[in-house]
Design a protein around this nucleic acid. Sequence first.
DNA 1: CCCAGGACTGTTAGCGCTATCAATAGCAGA
DNA 2: TCTGCTATTGATAGCGCTAACAGTCCTGGG
Lengths: 345, 345
Amino acid sequence: MSKPPSHDPRRTLTLRDVSEASGVSEMTVSRVLRNRGDVSETTRERVLEAARNLGYVPNKIAGALASQRVNLVGVIIPSLSNMVFPEVMTGISEVLEDTGLQPVVGVSNYLHDREEQVIYEMLSWRPSGLILAGVEHSDASRAMLAQAGVPIVEIMDVDGTPVDSAVGISHRRAGRKMANAIIAAGYRRIAFLGTHMPEQDTRARKRLEGFEEALAGAGLSLVDREYYAGGSSLLKGREMTQALLNRTPDVDFLYYSNDMIGAGGLLHCLDQGLDVPGKIGLAGFNGMELLDGLPRQLATMDACRLEIGQKSAEIIAGKRPDGVIGGEVIELTPTLQLGDTIRRA
Amino acid sequence: MSKPPSHDPRRTLTLRDVSEASGVSEMTVSRVLRNRGDVSETTRERVLEAARNLGYVPNKIAGALASQRVNLVGVIIPSLSNMVFPEVMTGISEVLEDTGLQPVVGVSNYLHDREEQVIYEMLSWRPSGLILAGVEHSDASRAMLAQAGVPIVEIMDVDGTPVDSAVGISHRRAGRKMANAIIAAGYRRIAFLGTHMPEQDTRARKRLEGFEEALAGAGLSLVDREYYAGGSSLLKGREMTQALLNRTPDVDFLYYSNDMIGAGGLLHCLDQGLDVPGKIGLAGFNGMELLDGLPRQLATMDACRLEIGQKSAEIIAGKRPDGVIGGEVIELTPTLQLGDTIRRA
DNA sequence: CCCAGGACTGTTAGCGCTATCAATAGCAGA
DNA sequence: TCTGCTATTGATAGCGCTAACAGTCCTGGG
């Protein structure tokens, strides 16, 4: 295609190489490559051709240092395999796409220590903003975030005090809402199945807390609970459900901490020929579209993942309509989908 | 906790601030913070305390520019919602964890143009290496990669000519293997259901090509095919399967391009009371553990995702046992799992 | 008591790019 | 012709950090 580069191939190219090849100053090359400032059309073309021929790729490290601007936005999530987060990412990318900002993903594995490291690592690249899941962080993390001097958006959860901005839902309220719907449908012997969550998944815990609160309000309490560790899958859901049903055969509702294990439970119940939702109801959390094709539609609650991603990115990009600068808390309202696993009035 | 910082809070902290606060030179601070070179224990502690009090976070941009070293590894994948890639990421992170390298994810949305942009963007940060999915790239992309001067690993697929190293499976061979198993089980009227993949998913296409090759070798050809666009889900699988069965009721095997739609198809067939695998067999691709709890285990083929991630990271980290430097091609062999949806001899 | 050598700390130059301002040219209006 | 602008290009000075080398001080052997 293009002429082979004439420079020493071992050395990496710099602006100077392009400048020499095109006969203008480095500054002019820089202007052309960034599309900034006035450059005559002829010069522009000459420079672009030289850059193309050489195969020059700018060094953003130097550029960022000189300009004190970095077009990166750090996104810190607990896990990639959770499927919730890829969808949030989609929302983020969507919005950032036409802002010149680029998301950079870090994974904390639900560990606060690990999160702290990732925050430190990210901040050391001086990103234009940081989006991170949850409002619970180590003291050191909060201190770093508060000092960072860039917009910080905590997502997924608004039950707590954010460092700066926050976008999410109230998981406590979500739990209450689900509980109320279940109670309203006449279920009384309700059990919970979910992550073993000492510190792990705070949001699941908050949902459960809200759930139990609402039960208590109706004079009820959980008749049994079953925890598991590790990734969620259909199989896990089946196993847990079987275990629980063996132990407490007379439950009439199974509340799962997420749709995946809920779906597993549903399959198990159907296999057993149980009357769903007549004798036993089920509900999960998350509104996983993925699972739409199951024999029955699992009752669930949408966590507004896409919207959370979008709104958080808008905050970072300074795109919020009202021109607010920081400290904004956006609470979204999850919709309850009764599906086919909670009986209707 | 710590004393409030005494510097102007608007300005971001630099080494100099820590140096002044601790009464040593910037260089010594740098040494302490990077844990490099000899520093007396007392000095070290003094510096660390000063840094902690101030809440100093090093500027890696400056550091990278000065040292010409960047501890970042670019990973470019087509999509996060595919579930295949998160698992690859897990393998990568696992290996990079104790090398001081940090993965940075970019998403190409299965578009070569977009991929080219992401490659350019990533290379402009001068990462220590690049891992990217597939061996098909635009000419410009290949040129950039070849010039980059850092290890490049193309993953998932080895049917093609990699720029540098590659780790993956032969999708063509995988398709053939599956076809042969299906033929051996006595199925004859075989249909394909999968992504509408003009350019989209090259690997799915290669599998199909291999599949059809093997059919042809046995004097067979696909009796029907059904394509879809968009993300895969159980529901999509159901719909496609229904459409295909309506059109061609006498098929005896359904070969899906991935497990998710395969699972949807399986649910549909079971709903319809079809005799699986007696009258009709099904197979997918990917070995999604996620789906393990389905009523029947779908026949599938493991794509070695975790291992691909690990091996590719090892190459970047220079950890390959044999000390090979580059240009290594590692072909992994996917295992066929017959599950419950291909009849046994 | 002197000096080699180790342990520790400091000084000097950039890394490759961009912000800023200066310089030059070209051209219309006074 | 001179002035005042605009359009275009260049020169200079860092951005915050680290590599490389240059001390400085102290210790033990001769």
